[in-house]
């Protein structure tokens, strides 16, 4: 199937033009940033957890870049509340593609999964599992 215009169905363009939960959470439990330098896509994800320290209460994102990367972050910010950190960490590329609801061409996968990876790395940093400054999906093809 063709991927160009298909990739820009109304939903993606809508989230790109009217991003949901755009901004920062003043009372975030954790935040993390990511960048794909070759695209110039940047994403910051803020997550606030509920009192159980496990369930995601609210997500906000900010950043700049292509429609795929920004729409993906916007959709993720709507999808994650109610999920647990374990569920977030179990998400994979197919979950993101399902969420976007379109075929993503191989060269654009890195744009699609940036927000998810930033959120996952943020969770893992928060739980002390990894130590990194910044996330990239530049090598995800």
């Amino acid at each position: 199937m063709g991927m160009g215009s298909d990739m820009y169905r109304q939903q993606i363009l809508d989230h790109y033009k009217n991003p949901r939960n755009y901004g920062e959470l003043p009372d975030a439990t954790f935040s993390h940033v990511g960048e794909n330098p070759s695209c110039g896509d940047t994403i910051r994800i803020d997550v606030r957890l509920e009192d159980d320290d496990e369930t995601i209460e609210r997500v906000a994102f900010s950043g700049d870049g292509c429609a795929i990367s920004q729409a993906s972050a916007s959709m993720l910010s709507q999808r994650l509340p109610g999920a647990t950190l374990s569920e977030l960490k179990e998400m994979d590329r197919d979950d993101v593609i399902d969420m976007l609801g379109v075929d993503i061409s191989p060269m654009r996968i890195k744009c699609a999964v940036l927000a998810e990876k930033v959120a996952q790395d943020g969770a893992m940093i928060y739980e002390g599992e990894i130590e990194i400054e910044e996330t990239t999906t530049e090598d995800d093809v």
């Binding site: 991927m3 160009g4 298909d6 820009y8 070759s38 695209c39 292509c66 061409s105």
Partner: peptide
């Protein structure tokens, strides 16, 4: 208002092959 990679994906849908990115001049 259109990121170069989005533009290039849409051009690709028209069969137009162009380069999008930093062209090795970051």
């Amino acid at each position: 208002g259109v990121h170069a990679h989005d533009l290039s994906s849409i051009l690709n849908d028209h069969g137009v092959a162009i380069r999008a990115g930093d062209h090795c001049t970051q």
